[in-house]
Structures are given as C-alpha cells and as structure tokens.
Amino acid sequence: MDVDLTLTVDGAERTVAVDTRTTLLDALRERLGVTNPKKGCDHGQCGSCTVILDGRRHLTCLTLAVAHEGAEVVTAGGLRGADGALHPVQQAFLDHDGFQCGYCTPGQVCSAVGVLDEVRAGHRSHVTEDLEADPELTDDEIRERMSGNLCRCGAYPGILAAVRQAGGAA
C-alpha cells in the first residue's frame, strides 16, 4: 500500500510515495538516492544506518518510513557547515584514521555527533559511576556510548581518538 511521505533530508524537502513496508533506510537509499546511511546488518545490530533524526542519533533500518512523516533527517553527508567546512567530528575521523574501508563511517560519525550532544545534555551511561554527577568524556564513556556502532575493520582506536578530539577531551 503506497503512502505519500515528506521528509527534510540534509536540508532539502523531499516528497516520495513509499510502500508502507519500506524502512526509513530503504526509503532514503532506494527511493531518494541518499546512500550515505549504509545497510549493514539490517537488524539494528551494527549501527551503520545511523542518521540524526529530529535531532537525535537514530537507526533507520528498524523503523518504517511511513512513521516519520514530516521528520528531519541529517545524514553524515549533511553535516558540513554552510561554508562547506567539514564538521569537527568528520575532521577528527580524518585526523585519526578513524576508519579503514569506510563502510561503517557515516553511521559512526552520526553516532559520535549524537554522543557528544548527549554528554553535553548530561545523559549518563552504563559506565557512569555516579548518577548524580555530570558525566565526563572519558575513554570508557566513549567506548560504552559508541557500542552500537560496529567496525569490522577494527578501527576502534582511531574512532576513540576521533571522538575524544571532537569532544574537546584530547
């Protein structure tokens, strides 16, 4: 059953008819040609499809496109500033070789942007020792908060360093 769907994707309003069964990931990739979010496991286990959805990091494979009428999607490709400069997280991934093949990178970058926002907003994590104290961006905190993004090349040391730098905790 087809339904009309309007999304803002990386700043541009896009309207497309989608079958109700279409995931947000497939709507972006197959219907709108936005291939930045990647299909890894397609079951919410790898994080490679992560985007910023209505301001928060979000998987696109475990959600139906039709449930997101009117949503704002920012992919890793939409993170550049108005002047074309790379987002500090993107620059940090380059500076620290936070990837090898690059397939998981758009999801890692979006997730890292979300992690830094969440730490600024005071969200605690599983490894935060004191729930009453504001969290700090320690390496353990970064590892825990980025655990939803897998990298089969094993570029984790570079990813960790990149998030540390982008978070100003270098």
Partner: peptide, 14 residues
C-alpha cells in the same frame, strides 16, 4: 541503571 544497561544509544532513543 537498567535502562542504561540495555541496547545501544540509538535504540534507547527509539
């Protein structure tokens, strides 16, 4: 603590 022990950051938002 239980919530923070579950799933991933992305999934906890959803």
């Amino acid at each position: 603590r239980a919530l923070l022990a579950g799933a991933s950051g992305q999934i906890r938002h959803q």
